[in-house]
Each structure stands twice: as C-alpha cells, then as structure tokens.
Design a protein around this nucleic acid. Structure first.
Length: 279
DNA sequence: AACTTTACCTGGCGGC
DNA sequence: TGCCGCCAGGTAAAGT
C-alpha cells in the first residue's frame, strides 16, 4: 500500500507530466470522494510537493506572475490501492485532462481521496493538519522523538498515527520496529529504544525511497508506478509479509499477529516485549 | 476532550 | 467450476 516512499516516488514520476501544464478538466463521477475538483479547471500546475502520504499539486491562476505563490492546492491521497496511470482501465476513477494529454487516477478499492483546497487550508483533513515532521527532513529531531516516545502507548499504533513522524504506514512500521529490535506493542520507550527507532525510521524510509518503494505480489493492492514499473524495496523486507519465515537476523520464525486492527509482523526473539518498568 | 471502535470499499483468494 | 465469505488497511466519522 502506498506509504511515504511510494508517494514520493509517484511525485517524482508524475512531476514531468504535470509541471507547467494547464488543467482543462478533472473528470469523475464521485463528488463526495473527489471534492471541489472543478476549481482546478483552467489553473496551471506550478509545483508538486508531498506531505506524509499526501500529494499536493500547486495550482496558480493563468494570469499569476512567476513569483506569485499558488493560491489553491489539489490534494491526493492514494489510499490503499490508488495510483496514476498513463492509460485508463477498469479501475480508473479520475481523469486529469491537461493541455498536454491525460493522466488517470486508478483506485480499485476506492480508498483514495482528491480535494481542491485553498493553499494550506487543511481544516477538512485533520490528519494532514496535525501531521508530524517529515522523517527525512531536519525537522525530525531525535530529542523531540525520544521525549514523545517516553509516554507513547503501544508503539506501532503510535507510529501509524502520523503525529510523531509522518508517512509511516503498516509496512514501514513493521520494518522499522524490526530494525530497531522493538516489540510492536511496547509502551513507554526508553531513550535508548526511542533513539534506535528514530534511526531505524530514517534508515528504512531513506532506503525505501531510493528503491522506489515496495511492490507486493500481483494482486489488486500491488503498488505500481504510472508506467507500470514496480518498486524494489520489497526485496529488502525483513518482517512485513514474512510471517512463518525465519528471521534474517536470528532464524526464529517471524510471527504475525493483529495489533490495533492491523496485521503486524515481528520476530519474537529479537523484538521481545519488555515488561513495563524494566529498563 | 481524548481515546477507541466502526465504516468505507472491492478484488483476490481459499474453501467447498 | 462457481459461488461464498473473508481479508487487506489509511483515514475519518461515530461512539464512549
């Protein structure tokens, strides 16, 4: 499923197709999922940025000066199965028509969202409004993370909340916790544990972006680039999707449990649950 | 107010 | 083979 590395890869890939283009129409038949898209009509795309798992197209008026900031943004969340395509298909939900051709937003399970909002107005998108720091930016500081982690609840759901750090989803949460050797249900992280997790998140996210994200199997949730190219980070997974297989570090069988309503993979040997209070 | 639970949504797959 | 029910899960709404 698309998390930060997949969204960042998407941003880089579609940027050359959209930057500087004028949007002629955003066509779809689900106005409750794809909100206020008519406002994009006639606007010029002056930039593509990303915040956590959200893609942001900067939209300026045609008459806007070069240095004038864009005043609208088109938000895209890929949900579980969303992605851009060069050709339409049976799961195409939104068609972006520009002066240089069309780009299609496909989304088999319809968890994806599109909305046009005034620049920076995320009141209708509480997760984006409360988004924590970007894991690969200088705003993500170890001392802040350690302090917040000292009284976190179960650490995996906490990571998934997007508040201590942005862009971490189910795959990269499991991978980061495996790398940091912390049990997904661990609470109240010690400074040492939180420091390890901080470094693991940065390392895993950085390597996943370099690899173009993760593509899993051939199923409907399989992430692909707009041109059909897969990511390559799945070959570096140590925990996610590896239930029943031996741990790459110690050989113990990776366990799959449900935590916070989500499939969770970890090594019971190298990620033991530390009793509360024990350091 | 903060936290937990449920709903959204549909294709793929296992089971019979 | 074909049908049924379960499973995946990020976000937000609903519930406590």
């Amino acid at each position: 499923m698309p998390e930060l590395p997949e969204v960042e890869t998407t941003r880089r890939k579609i940027e050359p197709l959209l930057l500087g283009r004028t949007i002629l129409e955003v066509a779809h038949d689900a106005p409750h999922k794809y909100r206020n898209t008519h406002l994009a009509q006639g606007r010029r795309v002056t930039g593509l940025s990303r915040r956590g798992k959200y893609l942001l197209l900067h939209l300026a008026e045609q008459s806007a000066a070069q240095d004038e900031p864009h005043n609208l943004e088109l938000l895209v969340h890929l949900g579980m199965t969303g992605g851009f395509r060069l050709e339409s298909g049976k799961h195409t939900r939104v068609t972006f028509k520009t002066d240089a051709g069309e780009l299609y937003f496909d989304d088999a399970r319809r968890f994806g969202k599109v909305a046009v909002v005034p620049r920076g107005d995320y009141a209708g998108h509480p997760t984006l409004a409360a988004m924590g720091p970007e894991p690969l930016s200088e705003d993500f500081r170890e001392d802040d993370f350690v302090r917040l982690a000292a009284d976190c609840g179960p650490v995996k759901p906490w990571l998934l909340s997007q508040k201590p750090v942005s862009g971490v989803g189910n795959i990269y949460a499991d991978e980061s916790l495996w790398a940091a050797q912390i049990h997904p249900a661990q609470t109240r992280l010690t400074a040492d544990e939180a420091g390890r997790l901080y470094r693991a998140v940065r390392e895993v996210m950085g390597r996943a972006v370099e690899a173009g994200g993760s593509s899993l199997g051939d199923g409907v949730g399989n992430y692909r680039q707009h041109d059909g190219a897969p990511g390559e980070f799945q070959h570096q997974h140590h925990a996610y999707g590896r239930g029943g297989q031996p741990c790459d570090r110690c050989g113990t069988t990776i366990e799959k449990i449900v935590l916070g309503q989500r499939g969770t993979h970890f090594c019971p040997q190298c990620q033991p649950l530390r009793p509360v209070g024990a350091a």
